[in-house]
Design a binder for these strands. Structure first.
Lengths: 158, 158
DNA sequence: CCCATATTGTTAATCTAGTAAACAGTTTAT
DNA sequence: ATAAACTGTTTACTAGATTAACAATATGGG
């Protein structure tokens, strides 16, 4: 019964695969692209720069002063328990203050400091530079299209 | 010097913000979209289904039988140390086998089992269904465009 | 051949991001 | 007044990933 060997190995049959299944999935390509952009963000902002989520939080606090922590968590799409450390870091760096609100003694309104506003301005410029450099092979039109399509994915939720 | 109060609070000045800075950044929108798709993937594949990365690994093993662990890690863009647990899980479920290669006693070639191939077929169908449902508000053209643009981001690296 | 260098799979330690559950204090609604 | 809901917080936990080290093995140069 020499014909029953099941472990025949055809060695290099990669040539049989025209296009890998994975490339057909949006989720896979989305993740790969996200990992690249996120890694470059960190590289660009450096050792003592902001992590992406801290930058995002600061951005919203600067643009929505007096936002509440729960509100900020909702905007970011994370749990409010997870926001505590982020706000701690920003407050520790002197970029925002937790302030109490007259009408409601539960909430802590988040107010950017002057330093927070100027530091955010610099960080935003650094992030813009990082994206411009990393995505240099996309035209402005392509970037706009990409944003619109990503927005459509987000619009499907809520 | 009554004019030096720095803590004036304008309360609801959200109306001053036309469009939040964050929305201008590709990285932010990429992450938000990725989180949505990834969460739906897990929901769709259920409790004992595959995590995205395990599905990806199985996909590549089925399509590139006899791929080596190092090779697979390179394809997935992760460290080979991180791949061990993934391959352990797939082997534990009886979906692939680690086999030794005649020429080189270091490597473990990964070969899908028959069960592995059929289970992968079903999983792939489930993933396709999940993406079709989740991304129903994108046309085929839009999906193709999105894939192409994500591919361009990946092409920037390598 | 010998020796330095590199590669493979693996383990262990560590880090980050994030969730879930519980909580005390406070507010809102019935 | 009492129940329900909300806010910020802590704690415990999970998933994903990286780094460094290691033994076994392979490769290339003298």
């Amino acid at each position: 019964m020499a014909s029953l060997r099941k472990t025949d190995r055809h060695a290099e049959d990669e040539t049989l695969v025209e296009t890998p299944d994975l490339e057909e999935f949006i989720g896979y390509n989305l993740k790969r692209a996200y990992v690249i952009v996120q890694a470059d963000f960190r590289r660009a902002l450096g050792e003592d720069g902001f992590a992406p989520r801290v930058f995002s939080a600061l951005s919203l606090v600067v643009q929505y002063p007096n936002v509440t922590q729960s509100g900020l968590a909702r905007m970011l799409g994370i749990e409010r328990s997870g926001l505590v450390a982020i706000v701690d870091e920003l407050e520790g760096r002197g970029l925002l203050k937790r302030t109490n609100v007259p009408g409601d003694r539960r909430v802590q309104a988040l107010v950017p400091t002057d330093k927070g506003k100027s530091v955010y301005g610099e960080a935003r410029a650094a992030v813009r530079a990082h994206e411009d450099r990393l995505l240099a092979n996309l035209s402005l039109d392509e970037k706009a299209t990409l944003m619109a399509l990503l927005g459509k994915i987000r619009a499907g939720e809520e």
